[in-house]
């Protein structure tokens, strides 16, 4: 399914969009295409690097939390990257269970409105105290995304029925972020 949020892009230059199964190999291809698109933008290297970094974390979130297709290491997900006049917008979407939605919501709510120094100390605390999950998650992804974007993370859970939700994550990497670009 293509969720409506993916079919109504913001005004701006669409760099990349896809809807489907994502695995490790496809992730490489997505990153390669996205990086090529980012390199052609008339923006600072710093903004491009931050956008790429955030894209990596967002994609890996989809792969960690997205609905797994039976017995395959594929996750169903959607990705969209748009260049705006004042930054780069990264959207990802994937289906999650009710338990996952509660856990993700809790993590994201903790980060809302946090100042940069708070995000940095939260990151360091989690880096020291956290443990890697079997799938390689460090519990640092959303903190890092918030740190690097310089903006609050926008998210929504659209009910799909049968205790399933479509998790939409929207991150704007602003060209006037926390450092003077």
């Amino acid at each position: 399914m293509i969720h409506p949020f993916m079919t109504n892009p913001d005004s701006g230059h669409l760099l990349f969009a896809m809807n489907g199964s994502i695995n490790g190999n496809l992730q490489n291809a997505i990153l390669e295409v996205a990086e090529h698109g980012l390199c052609n933008l008339p923006c600072s290297t710093r903004l491009r690097k931050r956008a790429f970094h955030i894209l990596v974390e967002c994609l890996q979130n989809v792969m960690l939390h997205g609905e797994k297709l039976s017995e395959q290491k594929y996750s169903q997900g959607q990705v969209m990257i748009t260049a705006l006049s004042d930054g780069i917008l990264i959207r990802t979407g994937n289906e999650v269970s009710e338990a996952q939605s509660s856990a993700i919501r809790k993590k994201l709510q903790r980060l809302e409105g946090c100042a940069q120094d708070t995000l940095r100390s939260t990151y360091k605390k989690q880096l020291v105290e956290g443990k890697l999950s079997e799938e390689g998650g460090a519990g640092l992804g959303f903190v890092d995304i918030a740190r690097k974007s310089g903006n609050d993370i926008n998210y929504r859970f659209y009910p799909l029925g049968q205790n399933r939700y479509f998790f939409s994550l929207i991150v704007k990497v602003a060209s006037n972020g926390r450092y003077s670009d």
Partner: peptide
């Protein structure tokens, strides 16, 4: 670049 999984 390094991701958060690598940072740990």
């Amino acid at each position: 670049y390094f991701n958060t999984s690598s940072s740990k």
